[in-house]
């Protein structure tokens, strides 16, 4: 399963690569990184249907995660709309509702509980599949 992580904090890349080192090594998960909403859109445009899951931060300078989500839902309806999980430090109901309305598949609060995230990813992408 290919996952695109979008966050303005560059160290996120190293963090994810280490957290998921076993999954990456086993080829179970493949990670790509974008450091802004705009970059993420570029990636999606250049590699259509590459990513099946997008993990995006909401608070980013420039295009926010929610805007990115709106763009994805509007401009990338085919072939299969990738699953989008939103990451945010503000895990309140309002943000949750907003994300849901825009078509997010879930909301993960920061700091990220990687154990929980792994479980979620496994649900979405069962090893058997």
């Amino acid at each position: 399963m290919k996952i695109l992580v979008v966050d303005d904090e560059r160290d996120v890349q190293q963090l994810f690569e280490q957290r998921f080192r076993r999954e990456i090594r086993s080829g179970e998960l493949q990670f790509s990184f974008a450091f802004s909403g705009e970059e993420a859109l570029q990636f999606l445009a250049s590699q259509p249907s590459e990513a099946v899951l997008i993990l995006s931060d909401i608070n980013m300078p420039g295009m926010s995660g929610l805007e990115l989500l709106r763009h994805i839902r509007q401009n990338h309806p085919a072939p299969a709309p990738p699953t989008v999980l939103m990451l945010t430090a503000y895990g309140d109901q309002q943000t949750r509702d907003q994300a849901q309305t825009l078509g997010a598949s879930g909301l993960i609060t920061k700091p990220v509980d990687f154990t929980a995230l792994k479980e979620k990813l496994q649900q979405l992408n069962p090893p058997s599949a």
Binding site: L15, Q18, K110
Partner: peptide, 21 residues
């Protein structure tokens, strides 16, 4: 609080990861 939260997350994560490593 928000600004400190990010670096703290990294410190915690990388510390945990280091133990794992």
């Amino acid at each position: 609080a928000h600004e400190i939260q990010n670096p703290l997350n990294f410190v915690n994560n990388f510390a945990e990861l280091s133990v794992e490593l």
